[in-house]
Structure formats: structure tokens, C-alpha cells
């Protein structure tokens, strides 16, 4: 048994290769490549100018949003632009919690995102594993049923999803917000692809040891799938946190909404308190942006590769 564990361990390490797309080469290779092509180095100035200017342009709206969140409403609406407030208005961030049902919306966003992510990981790995590695009657048909959903734009099932949730009496509730998003055809596809690529020897070995299929899945195969699971987790968190249409449809009271829908209902007032809206938007985006900045390469490669498949 000890032998096998170590074997599995090394395999696990092997199965976590460099980023899926290999973008952003490790520093050492990059350096050798540079010295090899030394004479090309000079033109990097242009690249830095273009990418630097472009990058600032991309980040500018966020910076501007931060500045506005710390200004007064008069400064924001001043006809001659005020690029830096006379005095930093930190209390705008406090007013977010007084003026808006921000805390309950934040709580809703966190809850639905956690539930959906956990559920999708669990259900999609189980089903993905069975579709990839097990034989049973009707496998092809059921797989086709699941994958066919990938080609359908969400509007096509939205009306009926709404009616189902309404029928269950779950409008304006966490249950209704969360329910269809517990299941993911894309996640199943992603996990099936991951399990298809794994070596059969490990399963055979565990099977000879008397492990049942669930133990094989849980102890042997699931640890190997961690890179793909993290891709699934990242895409689910981003989608669930940012999604607008479904929450807009199933909730009517702003205290019941997640942040995405809650923010959308803020606009339209003639007397918009811009700094508070900016502060609220920044706070609403912050968790996901922080996750992105911490995990940057994982997120970028994960999203790009999941799109590639």
C-alpha cells in the first residue's frame, strides 16, 4: 500500500504541469531566449510603450471609479473635471452600508456562489468520471443529452426555469437563485475531458486492491483532477458572482437580490448619489478581483483554456 501511495503522489505531481497554455515562460528560459536574441531586445521599447499605454487604458476605469468613490457628488458632476477630490471622502464607503441593503446582497452573493461552486464540483466530477471511465447502458445517449445543452443559448431555457422555480414557490428565495446553477453541462464536459486523459493503470491497481468504484474515484482519481477542478471552480465563481439576468428575473425585492442585480437597480434615479454607487460597485467587484489578482495565472489560463475546449 505504501508503494502505491507514493506512486500516486508522484503521478499527482506529474499531472499538475505548467500552466495549461504555457504562457508566461519561467524566468530562466526567458532570460536565455533573450540573450540568444539579444539584438531584438532594442525593439522591446515599442512593445513596452504600446502594452504599457494599453494596460493603463484598460485599468483607467477602475482607477477613475476609485477616485470618484472618494469624491463628493458635486465633484463628480462638476462640468470642469475634478481629477482629485479636495478631501478624500472615506465616509462614502460607510454610507454604502447605510443607504443600500449592501450587506444582505453581499451575503446572498457569497451564499449562492459557494453553494453553486461546491455543488458543481461534486456533481460534475462524479458524472464526468462516470461518463469518462465507466461502462453502462445508455451512456452515449445520456452524455449526448447533457452535452447538447452546451450549444443552447441560455435564453432558450430561461422561461421554463422561471416557471419551474415559480412552481416550487421559490421566487425571491436563495433556493430559487441557486437552483438551476447547481447543475452544469459545461462542468461535466470539462471534468469528463480531464478524466478521459488519465492513465488506466491507477484504477486497475486500486481495483485489484479491492477498492470499490467510489473509493477509486474519491481517493485515486479525484486528486489527479485537481487542476481541472480549479478551472471549474474559477469559472463557476466568476459566472455566479457576475451573472445578472437570472437574479433579475427571480427576485423582485432588492434585499433578496445578489450584488449584481442589486447594483443594476440603483441606476435610473434622477438624484443618483454617484460616489456611493461607485463605492458600492467597487466593494461588489472586490472579492472576485482580489481572487483574480492572487491567482492570476490560474484564472487567466483556466478561462482561456476552458474557452479553447
Amino acid at each position: 500500500m505504501t508503494d502505491r501511495t507514493t506512486f500516486v503522489r508522484t503521478k499527482t505531481v506529474d499531472a499538475v504541469p505548467a500552466p495549461v497554455l504555457g504562457s508566461g515562460a519561467p524566468a530562466t528560459t526567458a532570460r536565455t531566449a533573450r540573450s540568444r536574441r539579444g539584438r531584438r531586445g532594442g525593439s522591446h521599447v515599442v512593445a513596452h510603450l504600446v502594452l504599457g499605454f494599453g494596460g493603463l487604458l484598460m485599468a483607467f476605469p477602475f482607477v477613475w471609479q476609485i477616485i470618484m468613490s472618494l469624491s463628493t457628488n458635486t465633484e463628480v458632476q462638476s462640468v470642469t473635471p475634478v481629477f482629485w477630490p479636495a478631501e478624500l471622502q472615506w465616509q462614502n464607503y460607510v454610507r454604502v452600508f447605510d443607504r443600500l441593503p449592501f450587506l444582505s446582497q453581499l451575503q446572498t452573493s457569497v451564499t449562492i456562489t459557494v453553494i453553486r461552486t461546491v455543488a458543481q464540483i461534486l456533481l460534475c466530477t462524479l458524472a464526468g468520471y462516470a461518463f469518462a471511465r465507466m461502462r453502462f447502458r445508455g451512456r452515449g445517449l445520456l452524455l449526448a443529452l447533457v452535452l447538447s445543452i452546451l450549444m443552447v443559448p441560455s435564453q432558450v431555457y430561461l422561461l421554463s426555469q422561471y416557471q419551474l422555480v415559480q412552481g416550487f414557490g421559490l421566487l425571491d428565495s436563495l433556493g430559487g437563485l441557486v437552483l438551476p446553477g447547481l447543475f452544469s453541462a459545461f462542468g461535466t464536459f470539462l471534468m469528463r475531458t480531464a478524466f478521459l486523459a488519465m492513465p488506466a493503470e491507477l484504477e486497475e491497481a486500486a481495483r485489484l486492491d479491492g477498492a470499490n468504484p467510489f473509493q477509486i474515484f474519491w481517493k485515486v482519481m479525484l486528486p489527479l483532477a485537481v487542476p481541472s477542478i480549479s478551472v471549474l471552480a474559477i469559472t463557476t465563481v466568476l459566472w455566479s458572482w457576475n451573472e445578472l439576468l437570472w437574479p433579475l428575473v427571480v427576485t423582485t425585492f432588492s434585499e433578496k437580490m445578489p450584488l449584481s442585480a442589486g447594483l443594476a437597480t440603483l441606476i435610473g434615479d434622477r438624484t443618483t448619489d454617484y460616489p456611493v454607487v461607485m463605492a458600492a460597485s467597487l466593494l461588489a467587484m472586490a472579492p472576485v478581483l482580489i481572487m483574480f489578482i492572487v491567482l492570476q495565472r490560474r484564472v487567466i489560463d483556466g478561462l482561456a483554456s476552458s474557452g479553447l475546449k
Binding site: M58, A59, P61, F62, W64, Q65, M68, L238, W241, N242, L244, L259, S260, A261, L263, A264, L266, I267, V277, M278, S281, L282, A284, M285, V288, L289, F292, Q296, V299, I300, L303
Partner: peptide, 14 residues
Amino acid sequence: FLPYVAMPTAVAMV
């Protein structure tokens, strides 16, 4: 990549 992961309704405000 930042704008791609940011919440659409939140960036819409700015």
C-alpha cells in the same frame, strides 16, 4: 484581463 473578470454591472456604473 482585469475587465474580463470584473462584474459587468459594477463596471457599467463607472
